[in-house]
Simulated assay, not measured.
Amino acid sequence: MKNTEIRNLSLEDLKNQLKTEQTSGQTMRFAHAISPLENPLRLKQARKNVARLLTELKRRENEQATNTAN
């Protein structure tokens, strides 16, 4: 996912996408431990997507915190 796509997601969609990426990443890691994946770079992409989603989620939480504090 691109950052622009992530920013356009609603908060609920963002959380759902995060869960989906985390579970698929975990499944890929287990599968890779048993037998090598055809494309091991997918593991790297999954980690980066999770990091992007978490970053956007944290940014929105901080934005809400500063808006309520003012």
Rank of each mutant, 00 (worst) to 15 (best):
N8H: 07
K44T: 14
T23K: 15
K48S: 10
L9F: 14
Q22M: 15
S24Y: 04
L14G: 01
A51W: 04
R52Y: 11
T27K: 15
V50R: 03
E12S: 06
L37P: 09
R52K: 15
T27L: 13
L37C: 06
Q45G: 04
T55Y: 09
P40R: 02
M28V: 01
G25A: 15
V50Y: 00
A51C: 04
M28P: 01
L37K: 02
N39G: 02
Q26P: 08
N8S: 13
L54P: 00
L9A: 03
S24F: 08
A51I: 03
I34A: 06
T27G: 13
Q26C: 11
E5D: 15
Q45Y: 07
E12N: 10
R47M: 09
P40C: 02
L41A: 12
K44P: 00
P40D: 04
K15E: 10
N39T: 05
T23L: 15
A33S: 11
A51V: 05
K48R: 12
E38K: 11
S24V: 14
L37Q: 11
L53T: 06
E21G: 02
T27C: 03
L14R: 05
T20M: 12
Q22R: 13
N39Q: 07
K48D: 10
N8F: 06
N8E: 11
L54Q: 13
L43Q: 03
A33I: 01
A46M: 12
Q45N: 08
T23F: 10
N16Q: 14
I6P: 09
L18D: 05
Q22I: 15
S10M: 03
R29D: 08
L43N: 00
S10V: 02
Q17Y: 10
N39W: 01
P36I: 01
Q26D: 15
N8V: 01
N39E: 09
R52C: 08
K15C: 06
L18A: 10
T27E: 13
L11E: 08
G25H: 11
L43T: 01
T23W: 11
T55P: 00
F30Y: 08
